[in-house]
Amino acid sequence: MKKKGYFKRVQGKLRLTLLGREALAGIGFALPFLIGFFGLFLPMIVKSVSYSFSNMTVEKTGYVLTKAANNGFEHYIRALTIDPDFNRQLLQAILDMFTKVPLILIFSFFMANLLNQKFHGRAVARSILFLPVILTSGVVLGLESSDLLLTTRSPAEMTGTDFSTIMNVSGLLLEYTDLPASAINFLASAVNGIYSIIIASGVQILIFLAGLQSISPSLYEASSMEGATAWENFWKITFPMISPLILVNSIYSIIDSFTSETNAIMKDIKSTIFSEVKYGLGSAMAWIYFVCIGIILLVVGSLISRHVFYNDEQR
């Protein structure tokens, strides 16, 4: 494409070219975001960094920042080496993420494939499956996880026999197969935590479903004519076509798992700031946490995007 300027000179006056007018309109439409990002979001980020490096005292008309000890790194050092819970919770959050996210991805992909087929009562099944997106969010999730009575009545732990079934099955698996114990534990935790997985995978099912429906049926027709089986169709057409969404969904699930309200470390940061009134320490903890999230996202994103197939002809 030829590069054009945004302005032109007409009779000595500066006028907008067509491209310039388009750019102006685009910026005009994006203005709310630009104001929000540069006027509110970015200053907040900068302030948050500066809080984490300083001690804050609140007064009636404002607050005063003084530089923290150890060149300002006092709070970071405290969070990582002195705080008894922080490291453990950080590790726990990361481990939880790594066990949960693959399960969520597999489950939501499977469910999207099921819901994409034609059967009686599909509309009803869809509305019920999207219900958790609506109902089990925010404060309800927190209440549900802290409710002692409800957890004993949840489907997984309704009776003692259910749990012992899981134990028996995993015992049998251990005895008669060569599967490593860690894999069996993983499976058992997946079965046990099915409710939390279903609840966390609403948006992902939506995204996969939208992707599945955007695959053109002519691809399947052509390959069936050539004699491909359904199994081959799945791996040669559906899977590559959906792979960009696997990337989107895994990133979304990772963020969702890290920022959900049931996450222990999130609660910890909030209580450090508002209950214990340690502003600097809380901000430092939040930043350490965010750096961890960022690194994990980068690694996972680059690993998956290597295998993603982009169908460029369609665009």
Partner: peptide
Amino acid sequence: RFPFKKILFACVILMLIVPPQIIMLP
């Protein structure tokens, strides 16, 4: 099309990634 569009859209994604707890106190 407008200047810095790609960078600005990356900022939209950044906003999605940053946990709200980071900017909660500010």
